[in-house]
Design a protein around this nucleic acid. Structure first.
Length: 501
RNA sequence: GGCGCUAUCGUCUAGGGGUUAGGACGUGAGAUUCUCAAUCUUAAAACCCGGGUUCGAUUCCCGGUAGCGCUACCA
């Protein structure tokens, strides 16, 4: 377990842009922040980074919060719940960023830059051709303050650039150790555009500092930006936080995981019937493992206890859907049956094309779920798994080549005749045990056993030669028939005979 | 082009100067079952390459290679 932070109370944040659905990559970052905050007794803060006005949309903000809540993460401060360092949405904070940038200019830690885009681009091309790093040539850094003031007064547009000190920038990363960048490579970055709009790398630092963030846990795509940010902290005289740059999550083709790879947003997984605790468990395993490396199943509570930020691996991880599904199966089995039944209802509604279901129908579907949920990777597979109970189409069954093969076998007709004759004498509903006994009797009478005995009966009953055990199917069929939602065993026989003869 | 990060079974990972390199998913085989699924057992499967350092490197150092990221008045 971690030492209490030298910064005092741990404060971490998840700072997504509301530009779309929450992706597993971002969700994993959120998770690691949350786990760390909870286990340290710190604060987890949600901040909306909507400075990119073109792409940000309010409706995504709502969805984002719902998705994160679904995963099981809660935040202590955020745009909805407030907190001691508002605002938790960047869009109304622009004056702060401007004032702070100008203050930096007054303190001679930043300067106005009048350089034209074309000039900068030309310089860039030259550097590239000369195999040199692309840097700012420093033209305006040398400008006398009076000169700069005069040109500003004359209405010349100016951006503000931070002065990068003349020494390497070093910072500590919990995942990667010490990282060092040459100051030449960092080069004086723009913090405020000539339009007055602040730049992302500047805004984050202001926000993180104002919100007293102690640990910046984020994706490693920000690693190369970190020296700029460190320089900014130092220029402002703020305490540099601890960093932890998490590796990228890749798709099977080793490319950064994206929609291209299929279902990758939290909403997608929810719609597939993946349980939040399963997703959380799986994502935690992407880049983290407990000491010893065995043990893979961790409830959210256990994760909060066991997780160690120091043990997070720096190398990128490929997202393995199969393993996620395996974990999901585990949690489906472990979960309260009533909860699983309720979560599965929408999938039946869709499969049955029924908006409204009676209480009895829901209860019956709940029994189906209970019977088959442990055989399934995701809840959305249940209607398909239970289709033997849910539907019946004798005609279509006849036409399937693999069924036809069995149906025209020599032993089939005697088996079915005997079977049907016996069932005709049965009282309804037929019990599973009685059903089993009948099959035994048929076996005795006809001398047919094994697949030759079971397959025809199975086709008669379910239209398929493979599927779940009769023990489970028969009671569900009988119960469903009573509710008018399925066909009873006898009804199935009737329909089958009509089609078969 | 420059800079940075990364590199153990197909995948997620444990480990670490001397190990039969461990676990899990997936895959193969077997058991069970009328069958499918589930379940159980079992097998195959890895230290990127080249130099150092060392009695000994997969482990430490350097270089290479590859992947990824950043290199914007994008976020």
């Amino acid at each position: 377990m971690q030492q209490p932070s030298k910064h005092g109370e741990v404060r971490v944040r998840f700072a997504p842009s509301p530009t779309g659905q929450v992706h597993v990559g971002n969700a994993r970052t959120a998770l690691f922040n949350w786990l760390f905050a909870r286990q340290q007794g710190g604060k987890f803060i949600l901040r909306i980074e909507d400075t990119d006005l073109d792409r940000s949309e309010a409706r995504y903000e709502t969805q984002l919060m719902e998705d994160v809540k679904w995963l099981g993460l809660d935040w202590d401060e955020g745009p909805d719940v407030g907190g001691p360092y508002p605002p938790y949405r960047q869009s109304d904070k622009w004056q702060v960023y401007r004032d702070l940038a100008e203050q930096l200019v007054r303190e001679d830690k930043a300067y106005y830059c009048f350089c034209k885009q074309e000039d900068l681009e030309r310089h860039r091309q030259q550097a590239l051709a000369a195999h040199l790093p692309v840097t700012y040539p420093g033209t305006c850094r040398a400008l006398a303050p009076e000169e700069a003031a005069r040109r500003r007064a004359a209405g010349e547009p100016a951006a503000i650039r931070l002065k990068i000190p003349d020494r390497p920038i070093r910072f500590h990363d919990i995942v990667r150790g010490w990282v060092e960048f040459s100051n030449e490579v960092v080069s004086d970055p723009i913090i405020l555009r000539s339009s007055g709009v602040p730049v992302y790398n500047y805004v984050v630092v202001v926000d993180d500092a104002e919100m007293k963030i102690t640990h910046v846990i984020r994706g490693d795509d920000h690693l190369s930006n970190t020296p700029k940010q460190v320089a900014l902290y130092e220029a402002m005289g703020w305490t540099v936080p601890e960093f932890a740059h998490l590796s990228t999550i890749l798709g099977p083709d080793k490319e950064r995981l994206s929609k291209r790879h299929g279902a990758t947003s939290l909403a997608n997984f929810r719609e597939m019937g993946v349980l939040p605790e399963a997703l959380m468990n799986y994502m935690a395993l992407l880049g983290w493992a407990p000491t010893g490396g065995d043990r893979e199943i961790f409830s959210p509570t256990e994760l909060v206890q066991e997780f160690e930020l120091e043990r997070v691996t720096p190398s990128p991880a490929v997202f393995d859907f199969e393993k996620l599904y395996w974990i999901n199966r585990h949690y489906i089995k472990a979960a309260e049956p009533a909860r699983i039944a309720a979560l599965t209802l929408p999938f039946y509604r869709k499969a049955l094309a029924r908006e409204e279901l009676s209480t009895e129908a829901e209860a019956w579907l709940g029994h189906i779920t209970a019977a088959f949920s442990h055989q399934v990777n995701k809840l959305d597979e249940l209607p398909e798994r239970a289709k033997a109970v849910l539907g019946y189409d004798a005609k279509a069954a006849m036409e399937l080549p693999e069924n036809a093969e069995i149906l025209k076998a020599e032993t089939t007709r005697p088996v079915l005749d005997a079977f049907c004759a016996k069932l005709a004498a049965e009282a309804e509903p037929i019990e599973a045990a009685r059903f089993k006994a009948i099959i035994k009797e048929v076996q005795k009478e006809t001398g047919v056993k094994g697949p030759a005995l079971f397959h025809p009966i199975r086709i008669l009953l379910t239209c398929a030669q493979s599927g779940p055990e009769f023990d489970k199917l028969v009671p569900l069929m009988e119960e469903g028939a009573k509710l008018g939602l399925s066909l009873s065993v006898k009804q199935r026989i009737e329909q089958f005979r009509a089609a078969f003869n």
